[in-house]
Amino acid sequence: MLKGKGIPVFITFIVGTIMIFSFFIPHKPFGDLEKISLNWYSIIAGFTMLLGVDSLIGMHYRKITRRTGNWGYSIVLIAGFTGTVVIGIIETIRLGTAFNEASYFTYIYNYFIVPLQSTMFSLLAFFIASAAYRAFRARNFDATLLLITAIIVMLGRVPLGEQISPNLPKFTEWIMQVPQMAAKRGIGLGISLGALGVSIRILLGIERSYLS
């Protein structure tokens, strides 16, 4: 019986319904359910992370042993992973916690992870330009409208815009407050109705593709 979808769908329904009702009941234990369930999620996810690591490291380990694809880089990946974990353990033993400012573990975070992350993030400056260029070439009404509004709003937010016309920042403000706001609300209303639809399909077991 456990092999079918019946029990999981039932669990989803019960857990979901309790969560919905807990929204209206501040009294214990219902009032704390949201916090508890998020807490539980992180515990479950913590365990599942081992499945993730197994998946990632397994894939790269296979690449190395079979010498396929970019197997040399797979060594970098596994070395980076092992190195970080080992340094974390050593520093925990040495300093009591790896998250100490003097720990090499923190150094790894500050001088490897942070610059890599923020540089990846900053690539967006280029990508946003190329995306804008594409919208410029698209030559259909929607893309043109998008681009023109983008240019107006961008100019309205920099000192240059004020020099072109003092009305530009005001117009930008109006675009943000009126048409932008209207569409954002419309999309938001649609999203919450859509989310309700998804939730109800899942809770009632109409949609069960996530359970094989």
């Binding site: 999620y41 599942t48 499945l51 993730g52 593709s209 996530y210 359970l211 094989s212």
Partner: peptide
């Protein structure tokens, strides 16, 4: 997310 990965595996397998 690892839980998403596991769920995605189920979905694709199904």
């Amino acid at each position: 997310d690892p839980v998403v990965m596991t769920t995605a595996q189920e979905v694709v397998k199904e």
